[in-house]
């Protein structure tokens, strides 16, 4: 039976553990053509020192935390509310079609959605801004204004993924004993009271578990999304660790520095995952080992 684990293990060893040897690049003045184990110059912590001196780096870390915590919170609240509302619908056909419709964007890649959003949100010819102007307001430059860019990121991400979350919570709802609702009806509880006192407590375990586990993802603010939507004008508010690494590494060919940033991110993520694992055990009695 344990043999079945083998393909997965090999996969992880090849794609996760072996590449870790590349972390040495973070401490080198790396010249790629000489190879990973070639004759590289060791420069200690110089790459890290340089990164922390960069004025944009603190901003980048802050952006990452800001964008991803907003995504985390809204990504939790919106699907829960939606699941509860859907659950109250009597008509199964309507419920199913809504469920399917909101699930659809989840399957589109950000490359495709990026192109669509740039058109929809354009200040000069996008539908959304034409609507805003029709109401008599100034057009909003969603993808070019540092005030609006993070908001646009968070909202579009929530829109894309909340269908998926909704389905998980709907599944959790089916696990609640219908007897409790019948009892509450007999006691004279209205719909709000039933939702508050039965539905939400019934979902508590799933909510806590998903929330805690997503903590480990806090430094992943969504490379595909940001990369397809940002421009130099909104680096100030929209540049995240992953896009920063991409630019330094692949565009500027500063492999040592890029690896140092990636290493830094991994260390912080590791701490976060450990904390969230501890919390998951503490609050939801969830454990792997």
């Amino acid at each position: 039976m344990h043999l079945m684990l083998l393909p997965g293990l090999i996969f992880i060893i090849i794609f996760a553990y072996i590449p870790m040897s590349g972390l040495t690049i973070a401490f080198q003045k790396f010249i790629p053509a000489k190879g990973l184990f070639g004759d590289q110059t060791w420069i200690g912590l110089d790459n890290f020192r340089y990164v922390f001196e960069l004025p944009s780096f603190t901003q980048v870390v802050w952006n990452t935390l800001y964008i991803s915590s907003l995504k985390l919170i809204l990504g939790l609240v919106v699907p829960i509310v939606f699941a509860i509302l859907l659950n109250e619908l009597r008509n199964q056909l309507v419920k199913r079609s809504i469920q399917t419709t909101i699930y659809l964007p989840y399957f589109l890649s950000w490359v495709v959605l990026g192109g669509i959003l740039i058109d929809i949100l354009s200040p000069s010819r996008g539908i959304l801004n034409e609507f805003i102007m029709m109401l008599g307001f100034e057009p909003v430059f969603f993808l070019g204004d540092n005030k609006w860019f993070p908001v646009t990121l968070v909202l579009s991400d929530v829109w894309k993924t909340f269908g998926y979350g909704t389905i998980i919570y709907l599944a959790a709802l089916t696990g609640i004993d219908p007897g409790q609702y019948e009892a509450a009806t007999i006691d004279g509880a209205n719909r709000w009271q039933k939702a508050w006192h039965i539905t939400i407590p019934g979902m508590r375990m799933v909510i806590v578990l998903l929330a805690v586990l997503s903590l480990g993802q806090l430094l992943n603010a969504g490379f595909d999304q940001v990369f397809n939507l940002y421009s130099p004008q909104v680096y100030q508010s929209g540049d995240i660790v992953d896009t920063f690494v991409y630019r330094i590494g692949l565009l500027d060919a500063q492999y040592g520095v890029a690896t140092a940033v990636g290493f830094f991110k991994s260390v912080v993520s590791f701490i976060l995952i450990s904390v969230s694992y501890f919390c998951a055990y503490r609050f939801a009695k969830y454990r792997i080992f």
Partner: peptide
């Protein structure tokens, strides 16, 4: 362009 620079850097890095 970013696309060209990226391709060139990867080519140079690959040796």
């Amino acid at each position: 362009s970013d696309a060209y620079k990226q391709k060139m850097n990867v080519t140079l890095a690959s040796g």
